[in-house]
């Protein structure tokens, strides 16, 4: 296919920490990002964590 037909947007499916990081990097690189999340809010499993290993930083 010819490059001219390519679309400068990316869909990221899943808005946990992985999806957010991917979206932010893509957005900063100049791509339009559609971040599709199954639940009513992004954040994923990490948003449920109290602290993180090994620094015991607050996960939030």
């Amino acid at each position: 296919m010819s490059d001219s037909k390519k679309i400068g947007a990316v869909m990221v499916v899943g808005g946990g920490i992985t999806g957010m990081q991917a979206s932010l990097d893509l957005a900063e690189l100049g791509y339009l990002v559609y971040l599709v999340e199954n639940s009513p809010a992004i954040g994923g499993t990490m948003s449920q964590l109290d602290k993180t290993f090994p620094t015991l930083d607050c996960a939030m």
Partner: peptide, 30 residues
Amino acid sequence: MSPKLVESGRHPNIKIIANAEVESIQGEAG
């Protein structure tokens, strides 16, 4: 992680579509 949450929510190049799922995909890479 809340800076990333806030930034994702605010970034002009990110459209968050929450409460949603992919139904189908067509076409090809690119």
